[in-house]
Amino acid sequence: MDDLTTGTVVIFVLGVLLGFEVIGKVPATLHTPLMSATNAIHGVVLAGAIAMAVTADDPLGYALVGVAGFFAAMNVTGGYVVTDRMLEMFRPAGDRAPRREEAPR
């Protein structure tokens, strides 16, 4: 793992270029849902937390694994759920499922 594989750098650069291009002329109403969607995607750090559990072998390591797993899982699950809820508002009013009334704070 110590020698930086050029393949990983290639993947990184292509990923950046793809990221620049994938968002085109997105309407302003979709800015916040789109931000929330990309927010959910970086929850993939959960895969990092899982990989990290392999090398943990002392109480500090286990504590870090537990907290990182908590953080990453919250990011990924919450991110997708809340994005889905935001996008639910874009459906035609007729086929919107009945929902609990949300009292303002």
Binding site: T8, F12, G15, V16, G19, F20, I23, T38, I41, H42
Partner: peptide, 14 residues
């Protein structure tokens, strides 16, 4: 790497 790069770049544009 690929997901992070994607979010970093698209998030920047956004």
């Amino acid at each position: 790497v690929v997901a992070g790069a994607l979010v970093g770049a698209s998030g920047g544009i956004l």
